[in-house]
Design a protein around this nucleic acid. Structure first.
Lengths: 216, 216
DNA sequence: TGAACGTGAACGAGCGCTCAATCAATTATT
DNA sequence: AATAATTGATTGAGCGCTCGTTCACGTTCA
């Protein structure tokens, strides 16, 4: 093992070397800072957003900012993590809705695409900034991103063989999951161009036909 | 018109205020610099690649570098432009191949996906760095990006109604074009994950079924 | 009064970019 | 042929500046 790589220590969330004693205060303000940062990152991108801008937007001095956040990179990680949690939560809620008889794939797709439309800016941001994460965080975030694909895969697996649903082989299962998540996100990417031709509902309708075509 | 926006001057390629007289030399070295830069951008990203690194990789001093390129941002534009030209050329060549009787949509898709596989690093880079282009260049590059989608749309339009091909309405035409280009590019994005399950040929095979499903 | 919290001037590493100096090759002059 | 003058090309130290981060010093409140 040339150049002794660091012991594979368990990757935990960033800790802040703070003087502030009240842990609830820290949590609350951190959250506040993250929200302000998301807005700025969406507007200006990661590199053009300075820590001073963040502090100002959050209503702190830079000094105080560093009481709640240990570096800009850590803040980036927190942003990614938070957005991902939001998207994941929204997706899960949307899918929970489509239970019982409405547990139709079409409805699942519709809900997910709606989430992509609503959170388009956030999804775009995730794609843009992941590359700036230090390696250890990057792996985590990418794994999370794939989790959403996995949600579809498991949803599909659950449906497979039930009711009018054909039995799906694993490869198809995986690719359909992949395609759903990707085609949803591509609405976020190219919506300004696509909007010239389609409303989100039209886009959903055709893509749904598309995806169902592979299965049925 | 508040805040008098600059006259919409025609957007031309960046010019370099150089003292060097031999124009062929300039072109050749510029190309050389661009190639070196592409490699570095792929490896380290735009911001972590310094102009000094670029100069060194190209075998010049920073001083000389600026004889051939007027700024880092212009270099970024040249990189984007060059990559796009390469991709476009590769796509067009691939599609030219599939003429006459082999003019089957499946073949078109296969060729394009192969291009995406071969140029995966470049495609990824394009997605990552477009955001750092100054506005005037950004519009240009994005329009170019859409050109590739248009290639499919026109190809499809040409096929529409011919031989065994059904007549396609415009909306379908557009979305199929969009999906082909996007699903190809997503292989570049997620190939490391997808490769665990699929070879590129398997990916192509299933996605082709997928896309043809919508049409036939 | 002292513990908790807040501040912003100061720091310094690192960046893109410039330009006075230099070199190598060619042309002009003796 | 030898020397000088000119020119295109190259160089890299250093300028001006930005930005992430720190820390000595306030301020607040119990």
């Amino acid at each position: 093992m040339a150049k002794g790589r660091k012991k594979k220590s368990p990757v935990t969330d960033p800790e802040v070397p703070t003087q502030i004693k009240n842990p609830e205060l820290v949590q609350e303000r951190r959250r506040h800072i993250i929200d302000a940062t998301v807005t700025l990152f969406i507007a200006h991108g990661y590199h053009k957003t300075t820590t001073r801008m963040i502090a100002k937007a959050a209503g702190f001095s830079i000094g105080s900012l560093y009481e709640y956040v240990s570096s800009k990179e850590d803040l980036l990680y927190l942003v990614c993590k938070t957005i991902h949690e939001e998207v994941q939560k929204a997706v899960e809620e949307a899918l929970a809705d489509s239970s019982g008889d409405r547990e139709l794939l079409a409805e699942v797709i519709r809900q997910y695409f709606k989430v992509c439309d609503n959170m388009a800016d956030h999804i775009l941001l995730m794609y843009q900034v992941t590359q700036f994460l230090p390696q250890k965080w990057k792996e985590r975030v990418l794994v999370n991103e794939l989790n959403i694909t996995d949600i579809f895969i498991t949803t599909l697996a659950r449906m497979s063989g039930k009711k009018n649903f054909p039995v799906l082989e694993t490869n198809i299962l995986n690719l359909v999951g992949h395609n759903i998540s990707v085609l949803g996100q591509m609405w976020a990417f190219r919506r300004w161009h696509l909007k010239k031709r389609f409303t989100i509902d039209e886009y959903i309708a055709i893509q749904t036909d598309f995806i169902l075509g592979l299965i049925f």
